[in-house]
Structures are given as structure tokens and as C-alpha cells.
Design a binder for these strands. Sequence first.
DNA 1: CCCGTGACGACAT
DNA 2: TATGTCGCCACGG
Length: 110
Amino acid sequence: MDDINFFDKVYQVARLIPVGRVTSYGAIASYLGTKGSSRMVGYAMQAAGKVVPKVPAHRVVNRQGLLTAKFHFGGNLMAELLESEGVKVKDDQVQEFKTVYWDPNIELAL
DNA sequence: CCCGTGACGACAT
DNA sequence: TATGTCGCCACGG
């Protein structure tokens, strides 16, 4: 697994996120073992839309449940995508965040 | 090759 | 509780 690029690892985990659930950059980073490099996760997501299969980057938010990435998606697209999957979003913020929160460290429990 | 930037997070004040 | 600063590491210029 060490042969896989850091970005690819991020994509792998991101694709494991169930519909109607969201996770945080730090959670993914922690799962990968690069807890301090949460920024790299977000950076990887930047290219997520360029990779295949398509990575649900819209399901990844910051630790506060804030749609920091919506600015990059453009307009309200990210929020609409989440709501389309059943995730309630208000004021660029995920409602019931702790309820819809999906932690790879727990769910994958590896 | 060096510098600045950035989808974040934790700690310090 | 809120605001400010530092660390993290990859990529572009």
C-alpha cells in the first residue's frame, strides 16, 4: 500500500464515504497516518474532479462541518449535491453534522 | 532551486 | 468562547 501515492489514498477513502454521510479532511488524514497534513487531503481533493472514477469531494468538509470547498465547486453546487444525497445544508454548514459524520477511523475500524 | 500559497487542524492567548 | 499563529507538505511560478 506504500506504493500508492498519498493522493490516491485520499481518493480511496473518499470513495468509501456512504451516500448521505460526510467526513472531514483531518479524519481522512488521520486514517492515512498523516494527521498533521490535513491540508494535503484538501489539496488532493482539488484534483479529485480530474480523477476517475469521480471522487465525491463534496462529501468532504472541514472539522466544523463547514462547506469550505463550496467556493471551489462554484456557487451553491456543493450544498445542492449534499442535499440531493440527503444531507441537510444551511448557510454552507452541514446540519446534524455529528449525525451524518462518517469517520473512516471508526467505520472502517482498521 | 527558492518562495509563496493553500478544500485544515490544533494549540496558545 | 473567539481570534490569532504555527505546523504540515505538495505544487506552481
